[in-house]
């Protein structure tokens, strides 16, 4: 691909690039703009692109008590719940994923490859077919309207991939480092925590970011399990605007911006780690 930069070729590149950028960015940007418009402006035709009288009213409404009379959910609560579920399950996944990842990478035991393969394949079945039995299971355990239940579920869903990411990165760390630590009198757990894990930090970051994004964004299982308003998460809150049948898209825009923001931050600041996991994850479904 060592083409000499010719004007026409350059023009072609830029044009296609521009079209792709607009295609990718427009839907997100459009909702973002809506969050600053007024209800009147959103209902009027022809459609305006930039907000004519930019206002933060939609955000204030989502965060104020006065607007919760059956119409809007309590957004500070939703955000708190989502952070609670995403962060707690990330911590669990990181802890147990590291333990298991270490075992799969470093110890040899009968059935190792088969079990790891089975764990990875289990990811592919986490779809709509499991909605009903999961609901039944959670009701049986008395966890159907509980954030703790959701934390356990998300952890179980996220563990196989985290384990795999961590295991593949641990395999690349030379065994000798650990062996010399153990010769110096460290136990296996000590050598794992002090010698191996610091070297695996990038994989641990990748695994956490991936899990956080997945848990924050999850909708289907949260929507069947969480019943009371004080337990709902942001994705449920955003989806609830569908039922309102209104043209108040400023709320949809503001809520969508709030839901997307943490993900965008993770994406832009952790690009390096994220892409790594993305390409690896792709290979494993």
């Amino acid at each position: 691909m060592n083409e000499q930069p010719r004007p026409l070729y350059w023009l072609f590149l830029s044009l296609v690039g521009l079209v792709i950028s607009i295609y990718v960015l427009f839907p997100v940007f459009w909702l973002f703009l809506a969050s600053f418009k007024t209800e009147a402006e959103l209902a009027q035709l022809p459609i305006t692109f930039w907000p004519q009288a930019a206002t933060l009213d939609a955000y204030t409404a989502l965060f104020s008590d006065t607007h919760q009379k059956g119409q809007l959910l309590d957004w500070p609560q939703l955000i708190g719940n989502s952070f609670f579920v995403a962060i707690s399950s990330t911590v669990l996944v990181l802890f147990f994923g590291t333990l298991a990842g270490y075992a799969f990478a470093r110890l040899s035991f009968p059935g190792r490859d088969l079990i790891l393969g089975g764990l990875l394949i289990s990811r592919m079945f986490q779809g709509a077919a499991l909605l009903l039995p999961t609901y039944r299971l959670m009701s049986m355990l008395g966890l159907q309207d509980s954030l703790i239940g959701l934390v356990l579920l998300y952890s179980a869903f996220g563990l196989p991939f985290a384990t795999w990411i961590i295991a593949s990165s641990l395999r690349e760390i030379p065994k000798e480092l650990e062996e010399s630590a153990m010769i110096d009198g460290a136990t296996r757990l000590q050598s794992m925590v002090k010698v191996v894990l610091p070297l695996a930090t990038p994989a641990l970051i990748t695994a956490s970011m991936w899990h956080f994004v997945g848990a924050w964004s999850e909708f289907a299982f949260a929507s069947i399990l969480l019943e009371s308003n004080e337990h709902k998460t942001v994705t449920i809150g955003l989806a609830s605007f569908v039922e309102l049948f209104t043209l108040e898209f400023q709320y949809v825009g503001a809520a969508a911006t709030i839901v997307a923001l943490p993900i965008m931050l993770v994406f832009f600041f952790g690009q390096r780690y994220f892409t790594r996991g993305l390409l690896a994850g792709a290979v494993k479904g």
Partner: peptide
């Protein structure tokens, strides 16, 4: 662009669905 194009992939489904529904 290779970095930017992942945006739709990382965005929560619910956000995507709402944006396009509108």
């Amino acid at each position: 662009l290779r970095a930017l194009i992942l945006l739709p992939w990382v965005l929560p489904d619910v956000v995507t669905a709402m944006a396009w529904k509108w």
